[in-house]
Design a protein around this nucleic acid. Structure first.
Lengths: 134, 134
DNA sequence: CGGCATCCAAATAGATACTG
DNA sequence: CAGTATCTATTTGGATGCCG
């Protein structure tokens, strides 16, 4: 139902709401999409503030990629780079308040990711064809 | 704080929780990451069930990409392809119950995306350097 | 330690044309 | 309408080496 040509006003409201959501999600994916950005923010929220710490915590990220992702996160107002001058110069990345607005999103994604892995596991027991990277 | 070497047990609990979240988010991104999968599910949840409808609703997706994304969504248990034999054969895609588990995630992402666009807009008024695709 | 430069491989996606 | 095929362009990212 809801696809006949009879009631165009109903479809129109649906289409507008749909467009709104699509635009918003598309916006979100544009800034925090990709494999790494959210992961970096998550790791930083747990106290990993140094370049090398982040590289160690986030499995599989290379220095080149980490470096460029940090730059983008900085440009987009999620993090800040702090250079402390001293005998060994230390460089730390700090989350800015704006990144805390991602907490709800991260929470939802975490929850879903856990559920999904459970689902895959129970399907493995039977014999479904699904995909998770190992 | 929380980076000295004094209290290793505290850091350890943090690291474990961190790994758990990172794994979950990584899992989630693996299945629903990319530009299109969530968008397709959103559009389908609003009554777009035909190939061409989806292509019209989702700005910028090509037939080739839509086709392959639909296949992956089917493999991963989010949607189902229904072929109705008849004089004009009709093909419809239906969301499966599993895809409804994404609603909370989609909601959080929508909310964030809207907030982000607002933020960018108000920054444009002053003169920040951020990025949104136009 | 915190990167940048370079090179290269692979994934992703756009354009276009064609089909039953 | 619902795709497939092909070819190409762009993006992404891994590996390695180097630098202050």
């Amino acid at each position: 139902m809801a696809k006949e040509k009879g009631q165009p006003e109903i479809n129109k409201a649906f289409t507008e709401e749909c467009n709104k959501v699509l635009t918003a999600v598309s916006d979100a994916l544009y800034v925090i999409g990709g494999k790494w950005k959210l992961m970096i923010i998550i790791a930083m929220a747990r106290g990993n503030n140094r370049f090398t710490e982040l590289q160690r915590q986030i499995t599989g990220i290379s220095a080149r990629v980490l470096s460029s992702e940090l730059k983008e996160l900085e440009i987009n107002g999620f993090i800040e780079k702090k250079v402390t001058v001293g005998y060994p110069v230390t460089i730390e990345y700090q989350l800015l308040p704006y990144s805390h607005m991602l907490e709800e999103l991260v929470g939802a994604m975490t929850k879903w990711g856990i559920q999904h892995r459970e689902k895959i596991k129970s399907e493995r027991a039977s014999g479904g064809a699904t995909s998770v990277r190992v």
